[in-house]
Design a protein around this nucleic acid. Structure first.
Length: 394
DNA sequence: TCTGGGGTCCTAGGACCC
DNA sequence: TCTGGGGTCCTAGGACCC
């Protein structure tokens, strides 16, 4: 006793679409679809309002499909800056109730309110107050789940969406999991569900009937242990630790497949710049470069390389990206997507001595940072490489 | 109607070292 | 001469999530 924790999971309802409906009241009650427009080739839905969901529209669906299902849908490109602004407003409210706020994505967070009863009152009251405060501050509804672990609180928040509140009382964690369809278990996606079904299991109870060792034998050490614990409502560790590593990447899907080397390299140059700017503006470092290529048949491959020294300029990054890309380039295959990422990103170089930059690199780095500074002060004064202009010309 | 973009984590094999 | 394990780093691919 006394070790029970109380976690609230706060999840915005149809976040991007709700922000649009709030900012533009004429959209209220209408099927709003935030994401790519149907006429944009290869674009998808980011968020659909509940009105649009009634037509079967959902996230990640091609926008053209969404348009077919819901011709009266109002398609909006979306404004990430605005969404981020509302998001931080909400996180600030949560921060008033506990120092232990874990933001999971732009529209959800969990907060540990264990032991705050004397300060703020009963947990249910805190949950309802948070809902009310967020509504007053932003005009948006959220769904809140309450349970003894982050994982279960997250599942609880899904139960009465939208504008919901649901508690999994201490002691009934296992019963809750046994009542949950397998497809709703967070962490079991399409592929894993199929795998579980092929092994002859169709419900959480089916899995519950199997000994730990058997699950590990059939599904491997990690997945086996996860399944064993999750159906018992026990801590799975899936949402707990701090991220071990960090990466920065950008990718682009072309409206029409690229077929020539020059266009592909121009795209890589542009990606090198955006990735490097993001890295530099956070004052971070990386020496691992990954190029991602998706071919016209949707086969997706990656080529990766860890360098001796940290990358300090977008030119240097571009050179490495180009070399990696050329290893896999095949003139016979169209290119649908190109991505470029840096992984194992660090905040500091632990050993400056071990990675002295040569003078040229230092100079280039200084220029790069100056450009970045100008860009962030005067976003309209976009200093771009001549080649990018050239690439944009038809 | 073909399938976005930005992430994290896991698996598995090979290299290399002890 | 032919044969160990364990640990760590790296690469490539894949699953999952919002």
């Amino acid at each position: 006793m006394g070790t029970e924790r109380t976690i609230l999971h706060v999840d915005m309802d149809a976040f991007f679409a709700s922000v649009e409906q709030h900012d533009h009241p004429e959209l209220k009650g209408k099927p709003v679809i935030v994401g790519g427009r149907p006429e944009d080739r290869r674009s998808v839905v980011s968020t659909a309002s509940y009105e649009a969901r009634r037509f079967g529209v959902h996230s990640a669906m091609p926008s053209a499909t969404a348009h077919r299902l819901c011709p009266q849908g109002i398609f909006i490109h979306g404004n990430m800056k605005r969404y981020a602004e509302v998001s931080s407003q909400i996180m600030e409210i949560l921060g008033n109730y506990s120092p232990d706020v874990h933001q999971i994505s732009i529209d959800e967070a969990s907060i540990d309110i264990t032991g705050t009863e004397l300060l703020f009152g009963k947990p249910e009251e805190v949950a309802l107050r948070i809902k009310k405060e967020i509504l007053e501050a932003t005009g948006l509804t959220v769904s809140v789940g309450m349970a003894s672990t982050k994982y279960l609180a997250k599942l609880a928040s899904e139960v009465n969406k939208p504008d919901g509140f649901y508690t999994i009382p201490a002691g009934s964690e296992e019963a809750f999991m046994l009542s949950l369809p397998l497809k709703d278990v967070w962490g079991i996606g399409e592929k894993t569900l199929k795998r579980i079904n092929s092994a002859g299991f169709y419900t959480t109870r089916d899995l519950h009937n199997v000994p730990e060792e058997t699950l590990k034998m059939v599904f491997g050490e990690n997945l086996g242990l996860f399944l064993y614990n999750v159906v018992r409502g026990k801590e799975t560790g899936i949402m707990n630790e701090q991220p071990r590593e960090h990466s920065i990447s950008n990718e682009i899907t072309f409206p029409y497949d690229l077929t020539d080397l020059y266009s592909a390299e121009t795209a890589l140059l542009s990606l090198s710049q955006s990735v490097m700017f993001r890295l530099l503006s956070k004052k971070q470092y990386s020496k691992t470069v990954t190029v991602k290529i998706r071919f016209d048949d949707f086969q997706t491959i990656t080529v990766q390389e860890t360098l001796e020294d940290y990358i300090t300029s977008s030119d240097a990054l571009f050179e490495r990206a180009k070399a990696l890309f050329e290893k896999k380039y095949d003139a016979e295959r169209g290119i649908r997507l190109l991505g470029l990422g840096l992984s194992n990103v660090k905040d500091k170089i632990e050993d400056e001595q071990g990675s002295l930059f040569d003078f040229g690199e230092n100079k280039r780095k200084a220029v790069e940072q100056a450009v970045l500074k100008i860009n962030s002060k005067h976003p309209e004064a976009k200093l771009k490489k001549a080649r990018l202009f050239e690439g944009n010309k038809k």
